[in-house]
Design a binder for these strands. Structure first.
Lengths: 121, 121
DNA sequence: CCGTATCCCTTAAGATACTG
DNA sequence: CAGTATCTTAAGGGATACGG
């Protein structure tokens, strides 16, 4: 999943596309982004809303998303700690654009996809 | 990357989105699809045009894409063998829709993405 | 409540040699 | 030329226990 590895090769067809897909290849990234689209959430609420991901993976996901500038972290000095996560405008544009495009596409083509999968057997 | 694993969990936010991203998470899938958008290619031409992927990985990629109904394989009875790969209409729609959307988005936002990455250090 | 630290398992993907 | 067969490595992700 290291883009640099591919980039070193000369004739790779479309590195921009690879760079873009790298932003969403991690299992939970798109789900977390989509979940946050409705508004900021505390860590625990995010975890329970998404469901099915461990603390460790949630942490990794949030680090990656904040590192990529898609999500912001806001920590309130309290005890017990309280932390909010929210989409940046960049994150919003990713959800509203490409991710929504993907979602729409799969809904519109789910029938054909099912047929292709059945033909496998 | 097994959707079924996640699907077993109830409250996962957006399984359609997950199903869609599963179609493009494999490193070379989007690149191969984009490459074939210009027209059918023989296996060797596809390999040299894309560049940087092994025979084994190319085979895996093509199997996956054909299994998902995005690419068709046409073998001509010759010696030496000649095989053409081409996009299906489903594959074309994926390239023209969501993948193009991704490519456009990253071009338009590359500057912000670069800034985010620099801030990491 | 937020986050880290381990341990384990599975799989993607690279490299290479070989067959029809 | 098309495709298979191994072997190897790296990394994502799950589970869980622990610390601030």
């Amino acid at each position: 999943m290291n883009t640099a590895t591919h980039a070193r090769q000369q004739p790779v067809a479309d590195c921009q596309l690879r760079a873009a897909t790298d932003l969403i290849v991690h299992t939970w990234d798109p789900v977390v982004l989509a979940t946050l689209r409705a508004g900021p959430l505390r860590r625990r609420d995010l975890r329970s809303t998404v469901g099915g991901l461990s603390d460790k993976v949630l942490t990794e996901t949030l680090h990656r998303l904040t590192d990529n500038g898609l999500v912001t972290r806001r920590a309130l000095a309290q005890s017990p700690a309280r932390v909010d996560y929210a989409l940046t405008s960049l994150g919003e544009s990713l959800v509203d654009g490409p991710l929504r495009s993907l979602g729409t596409w799969i809904v519109e083509n789910s029938e054909q996809l099912m047929l292709a999968q059945q033909a496998r057997r």
